[in-house]
Nucleic acid binder design. Structure first.
Lengths: 153, 153
DNA sequence: AGTCGATGGTTGACTTAGTCAAGTAACGGC
DNA sequence: GCCGTTACTTGACTAAGTCAACCATCGACT
């Protein structure tokens, strides 16, 4: 009984925390005139990438990508470059796209997020818990567990 | 550099965890034919409540509630009972509404959520971190920090 | 008493994000 | 050369939420 109630409260808390993070992200990128999804796409496009891959990476339907690509294209930020396989189109940042992406990255870097309220040690602990919660292994490749000094901020 | 990157990864992790929780909830309630928002409304309506209050509690625009109330009314689960203040309408569960609500509660109780992967101790720790992260004090009134045994209620 | 600003609820137009099904074009194995 | 699969597009649809405008009522104040 109580355990279940607990789950519910905690779930709510978790979702609230995530929403706050999302909102902070949305806020940051909107200052550059982007929607969160556009921003996510821009961030994903470090290098040319088939639309299908982008869909996978953003965990959404492929048909979504068409629209996002259209929007970013209308802004002159991406191009559809035909791939070797002539079915695929490689989404590629234009020069302007690279520029905007860098600006956006700076913007996000300069914004503060709810997570910044935690010390590095706490962040470590949180990461561990979240990974266990989502059923992921300790680390997927990045994040090779660092000594965790007491961060600034 | 690393601190900021860290934030980003962690933020993603947090959001992923929340999404998983949300999905589990959506899955559970959809088995009873409800959307998550309908379910949230149903859960909130332990007792008759002005639409405005429900909007506050669900942290959404009042105009949203109109629609949700309409849907639940169409299902015969709620009624708009005029309040003392004749502007307000008290959303009230019908007998059928009470029944469905109970079933739904059972359903949710019986479903497992990502959070259940954590031990009670881990859940405590997570709660603490999340509260700090969202800037909340330890507890808003409920949850007066207990020794985390299998508690009452 | 009467006026007026604030409040509760509704409506309609709009946005974001996502799904799904169907269609076209190209790929690759047989 | 056919056929099943894959990549992208399109269009219709849904869930959810925002915003502005509106009506009725409230309550405070002159």
């Amino acid at each position: 009984m109580s355990d279940r109630e607990r789950s519910k409260v905690l779930g709510g808390l978790l979702i609230a925390a995530a929403d706050a993070s999302r909102a902070a992200f949305a806020e940051a990128v909107s200052e550059q005139g982007f929607t969160p999804t556009q921003a996510r796409a821009l961030f994903a496009l470090v290098e040319p990438m088939p639309m299908r891959s982008l869909a996978d990476q953003m965990a959404c339907d492929a048909s979504n990508i068409t629209g996002i690509a259209d929007q970013l294209h209308a802004l002159g930020l991406v191009q559809r470059v035909p791939g070797e396989d002539r079915r695929v189109k490689l989404l590629t940042l234009t020069a302007a796209g690279e520029r905007r992406r860098a600006q956006l990255e700076q913007q996000v870097r300069d914004s503060t997020f709810p997570i910044d309220r935690l010390t590095t040690a706490e962040q470590d602990r949180l990461e561990e818990l979240l990974r266990k919660l989502t059923g992921e292994a300790t680390a997927p490749g990045a994040t090779p567990r660092q000594p965790a000094a007491t961060s600034r901020r």
